[in-house]
Design a protein around this nucleic acid. Structure first.
Lengths: 93, 93
DNA sequence: TATAAATATTCTAATATTCGAATATATTAA
DNA sequence: TTAATATATTCGAATATTAGAATATTTATA
């Protein structure tokens, strides 16, 4: 087996690591199909504390799975990375 | 955000967890495009001890990322899971 | 059967991840 | 400016992951 790096293993490892948790995969998957951005609502719907959700969101941001921007009082999280979008799309096809 | 489980979060979490390691992602990705099945060669090429490679292969098998069958003296590992194939294909497209 | 080759398992120390409690920061509105 | 709301950060205990050394198992062949 030859490890010819025609893909960026480290980059995808980071992405998969970010998606490799039920809470984070749920967040990312749902953000793909709904334009939801309220951290507190995520916290309520997932039944997980707000600080914990924020930590998961940070991991997703660091892996470039999510982007964020402030919208008034709230932070809006989105899936914009085309590599991530391609992966997440496969899950329901 | 509503968590309408139209995908199996646990199943994909397991898959992503398996792929979320540089060694395992390299193995899975390469097995997609080459029909390589020799554990010792993987060990040599990756520069990782054979027991460690075997442990990674077990994780990949448990996540149903890889299948295996004996071929004489050796064990042949393959990517056959269509869900995994769809995901891995996206990485180089 | 005995030996070699290929692969798997067990064990353990080092490191990483996970969660929520407590707290901090940032923004909006009174 | 103050209070309320939304989000982020820090910390520590519990748990999980990682790697390789040592060993075991399985198969092929002499």
């Amino acid at each position: 087996m030859i490890n010819d790096d025609n893909i960026d293993i480290e980059e995808y490892t980071l992405i998969f690591k970010a998606l490799a948790h039920p809470t984070r995969l749920t967040i990312a998957y749902n953000l793909m199909f709904k334009s939801e951005c309220n951290v507190n609502r995520m916290s309520e719907c997932l039944g997980i504390s707000q600080p914990t959700v924020s930590q998961h969101l940070l991991i997703l941001k660091n892996a470039k799975v999510l982007t964020s921007h402030r919208n008034g009082n709230q932070i809006c999280y989105k899936v914009e990375n085309p590599k991530v979008i391609k992966i997440l799309k496969q899950l329901s096809e």
